[in-house]
């Protein structure tokens, strides 16, 4: 029987080239597909499903409903904000006023607003970001119950 003496063991040289090739290919792929996505947030809204006969929805009489109208101007800008019958002006300044008026009128101790639901009625031509900004202003006043009025479902006023 033949034994190999320890002195006969040679150093094994592994060829790293294919591995490095593959690794660099992967690097290039990931580098080209890499995109920093902006952080997204959400505004949760519950709107009941429309079924046959749902137009006569039960409404909680203990909740005060506050109508807010967002009127569009030229090129879809926010021309006018109406809180009930009150005009608050247009643009970003009007949204700040809206937030302040809602807070002053409905916020209880600690800024908590209870039993108030805001119904937003926005013009169809209004840019979407104004609707989101208005929602932002309403939520900033401490009101989470927001409903978006759809004139085709609920043609009450207008």
């Amino acid at each position: 029987m033949k034994f190999v003496s320890p002195a006969g063991v040679k150093k094994v040289q592994t060829d790293m080239t294919p591995m490095i090739d593959v690794v660099f290919q992967l690097m290039v792929f990931f580098l080209f597909t890499f995109k920093i996505a902006p952080v997204e947030g959400e505004i949760g809204v519950n709107m009941p499903a429309i079924t046959a006969g749902s137009s006569a929805q039960k409404q909680d009489v203990t909740i005060e409903r506050v109508p807010i109208k967002l009127l569009a101007g030229n090129s879809g800008g926010l021309d006018q904000v109406m809180l009930g019958e009150r005009f608050l002006g247009g643009g970003e300044q009007a949204l700040r006023s809206l937030s302040q008026v809602l807070k002053d009128t409905y916020a209880g101790p600690g800024g908590v607003v209870n039993d108030v639901e805001v119904e937003v009625d926005a013009d169809r031509q209004l840019r979407y970001h104004w609707v989101i900004r208005a929602t932002n202003a309403i939520m900033y006043a401490g009101i989470d119950a927001i409903n978006f009025r759809d004139p085709k479902i609920d043609p009450r006023h207008k």
């Binding site: 926005a122 989101i132 479902i153």
Partner: peptide
Amino acid sequence: EDAEYGPVQDLIRTCRVAGFSRYSLRAQ
């Protein structure tokens, strides 16, 4: 952000007719 609100409103209404009731409006 620059889309008109009308088409979004129509989309939500059609979703409500289809039976959906929970909505998440995404924003940055």
